[in-house]
Every structure is written in structure tokens, then in C-alpha cells.
Amino acid sequence: MARMSMIEAIRDAMTVAMTRDPGVVVFGEDVGYFGGVFRCTQGLQQKFGASRCFDTPISESGIVGTAIGMAAYGLRPCVEIQFADYVYPAYDQIVSEAARLRYRSNGDFTAPLTIRMPTGGGIFGGQTHSQSPEALFTHVAGLKTVVPSNPYDAKGLLIAAIEDDDPIIFLEPKRLYNGPFDGWHDRPVTPWSKHPLGEVPEGHFTVPLGKAIVRRPGAAVTVLAYGTMVHVAIAAAEATGIDAEVIDLRTLLPLDLETIEASVRRTGRCVVVHEATLTSGFGAELVALIQETCFYVLEAPIGRVAGWDTPYPHAQEWDYFPGPGRVGDALREAMAG
């Protein structure tokens, strides 16, 4: 085991994947010589050479479009979109091409590629560095969408993603890169070096896609979260003293409905949280599924805590971000129901 930040764990995952498979290539804006604006690819070009880790023109559709061609050829590209907020020029390539290539060609061609991108807020990044666009991908048949919440999962999930034969959207909560931010923005953040999930196995290991994990066991209410909100939900449970069970979804699609259903059947109450805007967010899908599968055991309406339905603001970051205060209110409401 080694102590790693989430950045180091992601870098280590790519190092392991590139070492094991010469078909793994890594590229994106500022990814090559410099090693990425968050330094996730630092040293990869020196280690593996410029034909396997390189800088690209600022063209997200070009990055994903060429990656699809490479994946169809037989490589396993793992590309970086500098911020999830910049993925939209590549959306057509992702939705109309990568997601459907296997289906429309009946397996004649496939697109085993991983598209990494930093997601979420909490860094005063304003509307161009803070968005959480996961629902735009979970809505698309043919994609898998993954959101790790800690270094251990980030490494294991990223290796699993690169080795997977389907196209994967890999959203990295940027506020978690250096420590488990729990939403108490005026308190110091513990670095990953002092957190048990900063202990990461060396070498090759995977965390299976499509498997959620109970991050904090509890009996009173189930909280469904992913990414940064896992830590916020735990903080909210601790602040309110409510015995909440926090489930870290890890993969949004395919979704581990079994783990969700088992927990909600036990607690009879559920709160769904995400940073992304509320309306048509992934929480809506979660609420619908719980309603379909657990309606007769529910003791209270299912709560939802999400970003407000506004563009992500700058100065009002902490009014916007669904921190432990708001999640705590939702927990109390669920218990009162």
C-alpha cells in the first residue's frame, strides 16, 4: 500500500494501465510535456514517450473524435477534457458516435475509450470550472458513467474503466483531488495522507464498475451520494447526529440498484444528494427507481438536495453548493416525515 492523493492515484492508474498494455494512450490539452493543469498526467510523457502521451490542439471534438478512431483501430485511449465544463464541443462525438458505435455496427467496430474530466465545484471556478454534467451522460444509451470519491476508488475504477470494452465517462471531483472536502468550507481539509482511503494498493487492482459501496453504515435513513457529496453527506450525518447510511454510488450507470434497494428497505427513508442542478438531474432517476422498487416501505417522501437551478455562480459559491447544512436539513425532514 502507498499513500496517495487523488491526483497521484489517477496518475498511478494510468501508469499501471500504460505499462501493462502498449495500446493505452493518453492525450488532451496540456497533458503531455506539462502533465495536465491538475498534474494528473505528470511524468507520463517522459516515461512512455510522446507517441503515447501528448498535447493536443484545443479542440474537444478533435480529442474525442480521434480517440474514437484510435479505439476502433484497437488502441485504448484515455483522454482528458481539461474541465467537464469544456466537454460540450465533444458531445456529438460522445453521444452520436462513441456511445452508438458498437450498437449500430453490430459489434463490427467498438469504442473502448475513457474520457476523464474534472467535475464539480468548490474551487471558486465560476460557471466555466464548476459544472457537474453527469446527467447529460447517464441519459445516453451506450455510455458508462463513473464518479470516484477517493484515491483508492479513483485508481481502481480508472484501471477498470481503461480495461473496459465500452466508452466510459470518468468524472473526477476536482475539489477532492487533494483531500476529502466535506462541505465545511471554512474549516481546514484533512489531506488524503491522513485519510484511510488515501491508502492505495500499489500495482494493478480494479474496483468493479457498477458496484456501489456503503460508506457509512446507519439504520435511520439512506443517503445516496457520489463524488464530493459522499463526504458532505457523512459530515451532515455527523453534524445532525442522525444515524444515516451513506451509499457511495461510484458508478452511476450501470447503477447498483441492488445495494440501494437493500438499504432503503431497511431504513424506509431516503435522501438523494448531488451538486448538479436539480431539475432532470440524476437524482430524479434515483428517486423514480426507489419509488418503483421501495414505495411500500417508504415512511417519508424521498428528499432531494442539489445545486439550485441556476448557472454555477462565482461569489455565491457557498450559497449555491449543497453543503452539510442543507443536507442536514433534508435528513431532519426525512426523519420527521
Partner: peptide, 14 residues
């Protein structure tokens, strides 16, 4: 069009 370029790049990478 851009996928063709990626496919060609892959051939060169390999």
C-alpha cells in the same frame, strides 16, 4: 472525418 484521422494516428502510434 476526425475519426479517420484518429484511426490513421493509431496506425502511426503502433
Amino acid at each position: 472525418y476526425v475519426q479517420a484521422v484518429g484511426w490513421a494516428m493509431a496506425s502511426a502510434i503502433k
